[in-house]
Simulated scan of single mutants.
Amino acid sequence: MNKTALITGANKGIGYETARQLAARGMTVLLGARDPELGQAAADKLRAEGADAHFVRIDVTDEESIAAAAARIEADFGKLDVLVNNAAISGGLEGDGKPSSGTLATLRQVYETNLFGLVAVTNALLPLLRRAEAGRIVNVSSEVGSLAGRTNPNNPLSQMVSAIPYTSSKTAVNMATVLYAMELKDTPIKVNAANPGYTATDLNGNSGFRTAEQGAEPSVHLATLPEDGPSGTFYGYIWGQDEYGRIDW
């Protein structure tokens, strides 16, 4: 039986490319998206390329929507092999983009999607992941949320002053990843965080220097880890080195 993967925020960008690459590896891919028209169009595009792709409506900020998506996946597939928590928002630019210029409203909005949504989706789908032979959870994070990188004077990130919402939400995603990995350490489920690198997407006005195809590669790697693969790690593009590897939290 084919493995089944749900990718949230999959109608475009890194999420769509993650779905495409997992489908190319023989998985049934469920493209999670809020907008039915955009989500179905993305699934249809992949199906036209030969992928076993299906649209699943899911709004990660709406618990009823999450519950409905989980119920549909259970009814149609009985289990879930891979969950890629990809959906995220940046919060946009407020003032001069420095920590003191941000508003609490934006902070709450970003956390609602980037952290609370991730936790809600993971908790709702964990029973289905437990039914899989070897479940994989991939939380799409960012190196900008690395405390080690931000405080290391030899790391370019230590010179980057940025707003609190997006950056700190990814730090929180990293901690959530560690905690889920600890909870599930005695199960076949592996939980890891992926760093796409600075990828050109709508999130950053397509200003990144990496393509969506490249940005998806760390998530695909972690979604297809073998039995002896790691859990509770931060893996992906290493800033300034043009290579992939473990990233310090």
Score class of each variant (00 low, 15 high):
Gly149Ser: 11
Asp52Asn: 14
Gln241Lys: 15
Glu133Ser: 13
Phe55Met: 01
Gln21Leu: 14
Ala163Trp: 01
Ala51Met: 09
Leu107Ala: 11
Gly91Ser: 07
Ala200Asp: 04
Arg57Lys: 13
Ser219Glu: 03
Val178Ser: 08
Lys170Leu: 10
Trp239Ser: 08
Ala132Met: 06
Asp44Glu: 15
Ala53Glu: 01
Ser158Ile: 12
Thr211Trp: 07
Ile7Tyr: 01
Ala223Lys: 04
Gly208Trp: 04
Ala71Phe: 05
Glu17Ala: 07
Gly15Cys: 07
Lys12Arg: 15
His54Asp: 04
Asp35Ala: 09
Gly145Asn: 08
Asn152Ile: 10
Phe234Ile: 05
Thr61Ile: 09
Glu183Met: 13
Arg131Val: 05
Ala41Gly: 11
Lys79Tyr: 08
Ile247Ser: 01
Tyr166Lys: 05
Ile66Asp: 01
Glu133Val: 09
Glu37Val: 14
Glu227Thr: 14
Gly15Arg: 02
Ile238Glu: 11
Asp44Thr: 12
Arg34Phe: 07
Ile66Ser: 03
Val56Arg: 02
Leu107Ser: 08
Leu203Cys: 10
Thr201Ile: 06
Val161Cys: 02
Ala212Trp: 00
Glu17Trp: 07
Ala41Leu: 07
Pro226Cys: 06
Gly92Asn: 08
Gly13Leu: 04
Leu107Gln: 10
His54Ser: 12
Ile66Lys: 02
Ser162Gln: 13
Asp44Arg: 10
Gly32Arg: 00
Val60Thr: 13
Ala42Cys: 10
Leu115Trp: 00
Thr211Gly: 08
Thr4Met: 01
Asp186Glu: 15
Val138Tyr: 03
Thr199Val: 12
Ala41Ser: 14
Arg108Tyr: 05
Asn192Ile: 10
Gly145Gln: 06
Ala23Ile: 11
Ala43Ile: 04
Pro165Trp: 06
Leu115Ser: 00
Thr201Tyr: 02
Asp52Lys: 09
Ile137Glu: 00
Ser141Asn: 12
Leu30Cys: 12
Gly91Leu: 04
Gly78Tyr: 07
Met27Trp: 07
Gly229Asn: 06
Thr113Ile: 12
Ser146Ala: 12
Met27Cys: 11
Gly135Ala: 02
Gln241Glu: 15
Ser101Pro: 00
Lys98Thr: 14
Glu133Asp: 15
Phe209Gly: 01
His221Phe: 15
Asn139Lys: 07
Gly240Gln: 07
Ala120Gly: 04
Ala194Cys: 07
Ile14Asn: 01
Tyr235Pro: 03
Gly236Tyr: 00
Gly236Leu: 02
Asn114Leu: 07
Gly208Leu: 06
Gly26Gln: 09
Gly215Ala: 12
Asp52Phe: 02
Pro99Cys: 13
